[in-house]
């Protein structure tokens, strides 16, 4: 158990190291990325440029710069932005994290509930018009770009029909912290979360339907029928148990990458000050410390999610737990 934990930790450090080197390298390999000019301001004299360069350490060798940045990010946690007059980035990310987490929690609630319902109904009624209708809708949801959908939602609920009874409850764009007003928090997140979940509902319903239908062809399901189990028990108790492995792992990965900032477009469209929007901002201003901080934050979540998924996997399928000991 301890050894497994240590191995996980080692793996995580390795992944973080790799990603940070990559981000760092790509940044300095990008033409015109030299931050000196932007920090010094337009039309700065060569002397000012030189002062900035040495103050920020841009004249040192890259490995030294890298080490200093990592030290500031992880140890002293006072890494400052290249823009915004040197605002510290770590508190910025920490302030953005609850927004993203709230959004993704709501979205995942919607997408799990709806995709389970649609996936199971479509599988049970396969090839009926209900199934075809749901799968058509799902494909539509899957292929709608989330920023476009978000803009349409905004157009409808914020301006066009905002004064009708249907949408008058919709608050203005932005975020309301839970501690301030739980109801306001829920209202502010409802539409963004639904928008974000649409594509996932489409994808997950399809995956679940396919997996469920494949599982229903297995011998074990025939055994369940031969035991005298009714259709509800056969589908939900036996069928789901055989088929939700890939659903669960898909969910873990998507959840983690969204919490890590993958909901960028949704956050931008709905003006939610989350991690995704922070990443977007960092990319826009080519602000390496901010990019580095958000990317590291995302990577931690993805690696953690991987570990959790492996654990859940072993719980769901004992054969996998044993396979690990064998290796």
């Amino acid at each position: 158990m301890l050894r497994m934990l240590a191995a996980r930790l080692g793996q995580m450090v390795f992944v973080l190291f790799g990603i940070s080197v990559l981000v760092f390298g790509v940044f300095f390999a990008t033409p015109g990325a030299d931050p000196t000019a932007r920090i010094a301001g337009r039309g700065a004299s060569p002397e000012v440029m030189a002062r900035v360069r040495s103050a920020y350490g841009f004249d040192r060798p890259l490995p030294v710069q890298y080490a200093r940045m990592m030290e500031k990010l992880f140890v002293s946690r006072d890494l400052t932005s290249f823009v915004d007059h040197g605002a510290p980035v770590v508190p910025e990310v920490m302030a953005a994290a609850p927004v993203t987490l709230s959004l993704v929690l709501w979205a995942s609630l919607f997408w799990v509930v709806f995709s389970l319902a649609i996936g199971i109904v479509s599988a049970v009624l396969r090839d009926s018009w209900v199934d075809r209708f749901f799968m058509g809708i799902g494909l539509l949801g899957l292929s709608m770009p989330v920023f476009w959908l978000g803009e349409v939602v905004n157009l409808v609920t914020q301006s066009r029909f905002h004064d009708t009874w249907l949408f008058s409850w919709v608050p203005p764009l932005g975020y309301v912290p839970f501690s301030e007003s739980p109801l306001g928090w829920a209202r502010a997140l409802l539409l963004p979360a639904l928008t974000l979940s649409v594509a996932f509902i489409g994808l997950y319903a399809r995956v679940l339907r396919a997996e469920l239908l494949a599982a229903m062809g297995e011998d074990a399901i025939r055994t369940a029928r031969a035991k005298g189990a009714g259709p509800a028990r056969v589908w939900l108790w036996h069928g789901l148990r055989l088929s939700w492995l890939s659903y669960v792992s898909l969910f873990g990965m998507d959840f983690a990458q969204l919490v890590g900032g993958g909901a960028l477009l949704t956050e931008v469209v709905f003006a939610l000050p989350g991690v995704g929007r922070l990443t977007y901002q960092g990319l826009n201003t080519l602000d390496l410390p901010l990019i580095m901080a958000t990317v590291m934050y995302a990577a931690v979540f993805v690696v953690l999610a991987n570990a959790v998924i492996d654990g859940v996997y072993a719980l769901l399928d004992p054969r996998i737990a044993e396979g690990r000991h064998g290796r």
Binding site: E218, D219, A220, R222, T223, A224, R225, A226, K227, G228, H238, R241, L242, L316, D317, P318, R319
Partner: peptide
Amino acid sequence: RGKEIAMIFQDPMTAFLPV
């Protein structure tokens, strides 16, 4: 099924739910 008529299947490897 299962009560008055029961069945044993050919392949005991796959007939049980593995999980």
